[in-house]
């Protein structure tokens, strides 16, 4: 019979220690964590970025990823968007009784691999068990170091800047919805760490005014946030927005708009026009950025209006997403 999580695993007694040993210590082992102290002690110098996020997605496993990979990449990406190099991550698990331990182990293994790929160390963790039906929730907090000279933030967009999108819209959202609705298709989540792509852009010598990962709320919401924070207006070309045909097809059936769908491995980089080609070429050389495109530009100072030029020559205002949109996908 499959071994399941019980309330005893959260008791702090023998079962809890077993779980720690069999699952977390086994997969997360490193010199900081192995000291088993009450807190991790880290040597940090320079400007540090800190970010925290919680992950509640169902199903736990989906094409292209799982909740564990998402929990590491999501938080590491938030650090990378500030120009930081992610260094450390903590993870808190809330497990519902009934969760298969084998499932938890697969998720822990996936987190360990994602952390290794992103170059971050898991330095602290916690587990609680609550009553329920086999659910699992993960909180991760990340710390990254911002190298000298980098100054990316939402408020940095300037007149004339090019807006670069790192790839196709809506893949993660479409993948999760397909899984929940039992629809058979080949749509894969784009769940990925974006830090390597960010480093490529900086290494190419491009100045970066603003970055943001295109997660909940989708591109429409994120660009409104950047435009408002920077006090600028933006203009987008609808025909330049990359969307996979199978995602477009699903959106057509369900009446969804890729502009407001969540991604977990896509970002926006706002760079001075002179550096646009440099940054685009650098992005395109990475697996996460191979479908990157310049999708628009910052037109000038303004109140944060984002205008979409349509393929037939019309235009419209793009607003943020209102309401919850669709079920939770991260």
């Amino acid at each position: 019979m499959t071994e399941k999580i019980t309330m005893a695993h959260g008791s702090g007694g023998r079962s809890g220690a077993d779980l720690m040993e069999k699952v977390f210590a086994k997969h997360f082992s490193n010199e900081v964590l192995d000291r088993m102290e009450d807190a991790a002690v880290l040597d940090i110098s320079g400007r540090a970025a800190v970010s925290t996020d919680s992950f509640v997605v169902t199903p736990h496993f989906f094409k292209g990823g799982d909740i564990g990979k998402l929990a590491v990449c999501g938080t590491a990406n938030d650090l990378a968007m500030m120009g930081a190099v992610p260094k450390y991550i903590t993870c808190g698990f809330i497990l519902e009784e009934g969760l298969a331990i084998e499932e938890l182990e697969r998720i822990a293994a996936s987190m360990a691999k994602a952390a290794e790929d992103a170059g971050v160390r898991i330095v602290a963790g916690d587990t609680k068990v609550v009553e329920g039906k086999g659910g699992l929730y993960i909180n991760t907090t990340g710390i990254g170091i911002i190298p000298e000279g980098r100054n990316a933030g939402a408020a940095g967009c300037k007149e004339g800047d090019a807006i670069i999108l790192s790839g196709t819209l809506g893949d993660h959202h479409a993948c999760i919805l397909s899984a929940r609705m039992g629809m058979e298709n080949d749509i894969k989540s784009d769940c990925a760490f974006l830090g390597h792509a960010v480093e490529k852009i900086y290494a190419a010598g491009a100045e970066v005014h603003a970055m943001r990962d295109v997660t909940r709320g989708g591109l429409g919401t994120i660009l409104n946030e950047l435009a408002e924070a920077s006090g600028v207006d933006m203009e987008l070309e609808e025909s330049s927005l990359p969307v996979r045909p199978e995602v477009r097809g699903l959106c057509g059936i369900l009446g969804l708009e890729p502009l407001y769908m969540g991604n977990e491995g896509k970002m926006i980089a706002v760079v001075p026009e002179k550096d646009a080609e440099k940054a685009l070429t650098a992005l395109k050389e990475t697996p996460e950025g191979r479908d990157a495109a310049i999708i628009g530009r910052v037109t000038g100072k303004g109140e944060g209006e984002v205008i979409m030029n349509t393929p037939l020559g019309g235009s419209r205002i793009v607003d943020m997403l209102y309401g919850e949109g669709l079920p939770r996908i991260c």
Partner: peptide, 15 residues
């Protein structure tokens, strides 16, 4: 309503 949404989305009113 789907037509209304499509008219706005494609910017027809501006054309």
């Amino acid at each position: 309503g789907t037509h209304t949404a499509a008219i706005f989305k494609s910017g027809i009113r501006s054309l």
